[in-house]
Design a binder for these strands. Structure first.
Lengths: 183, 183
DNA sequence: TCTAATAGTAGCGAGTCGAAACTATTGCAA
DNA sequence: TTGCAATAGTTTCGACTCGCTACTATTAGA
């Protein structure tokens, strides 16, 4: 039988899908990597917006991530903010211009929105499983939402992080955290 | 609610998955684009191995595809073969060395192989739907298997292509064709 | 026949990519 | 307290992708 393996077919579909998606990015002012970095920063909480976090999320090196972030800063889409407590580290915040950039329509998003809800649910679950399992073999971080983390505690109106020992303002808990550990 | 849209989540998962997959390629002698081009050539039939076909499959330009193919040829993984009937066109054939390269183990493939059969089936179906719908809006070709094409006809032991008016040897029908139209 | 379409390529500038070398901090232990 | 070692970020390098434009060669069609 010259039928191809299931894993080969899926691998190919994922590659094709991301190429089709990336081809759209190239038409805009941002290339796919820059868009991915900006998109991450827009969804990451204040503890997770350093170059090294972006590097790990994008599965690349700190050097490469550094260059991509410099390019975004040059274009005025993010702004660097130095830490007072640790003079080595930098946090990049997304500017209003950067936030606008995230609103651009996407062909892939349109297609997904037209899919039946049940299919979307299953697809999301399957993709999450794949990402989780690969991250397990690579010992990579999950980058899940703060409020779904094992260190997250509800506290009055807000919340608290047991790992970093800090109070969490409302937005923090709904954003991505690089310290995330599945509860 | 600051919950993100389903489409955004799925888009992100696909990007993350392809980055995790691509990161593995970088460890080898081929970069992700070169690997994708080689993988395509290894599965495409003799009518579909020209630079312009690779370009359309990889959703890029002929110029970029041309460079990637030259790089693969330099590494001895593919060999160019000029056409006798049309002196403009070139067909690249995968060498034995190139075929060996395709056997490299993949972390993503391993994870997929461990998934329950039912999940794999649903996932494949959903991803195929997404690719099909996006291609529809872009007016792109489907690049399906020859034997699932509307122009495919069984004929004795072999098969026949009604579009190109040629007999199909056994391997042809099980390979990708750039002229593919869903039956 | 002559012009338009097609196939492939070369070169440009911006940027990604890993890798290695480098600076500036911070942490920790003797 | 001094003195490394670890950490955070950057820079540079060479190979390459990427869209784009301009170009050559060939073929198709009016």
């Amino acid at each position: 039988m010259s039928e191809h393996k299931n894993s080969q077919v899926i691998r190919d579909l994922i590659d094709r899908l991301s190429r089709l998606n990336a081809a759209e990015d190239w038409n805009g002012p941002l290339n796919p990597s820059q868009f991915a970095a900006l998109s991450y920063l827009a969804r990451a909480n204040r503890f997770s917006r350093a170059p090294s976090h972006v590097a790990e999320y994008l599965v690349t090196t700190r050097g490469t991530a550094s260059q991509t972030l410099k390019a975004l800063a040059r274009k005025g889409l993010i702004r660097e903010s130095r830490s007072a407590t640790d003079k080595r580290s930098i946090r990049y915040d997304v500017t209003d211009l950067g936030k606008d950039m995230m609103k651009a329509p996407s062909g892939l998003a349109n297609v997904i929105d037209d899919l039946p809800e049940e299919i979307v649910k299953d697809l999301t679950g399957s993709l999450k499983t794949l990402v989780r399992e690969i991250l397990k073999t690579r010992k990579g971080r999950s980058f899940g939402l703060c409020r779904t983390c094992a260190h997250h505690r509800n506290r009055g109106n807000g919340a608290y992080c047991n790992l970093l020992d800090v109070s969490l303002a409302p937005p923090d808990a709904n954003e991505i955290c690089h310290e995330h550990i599945a509860a």
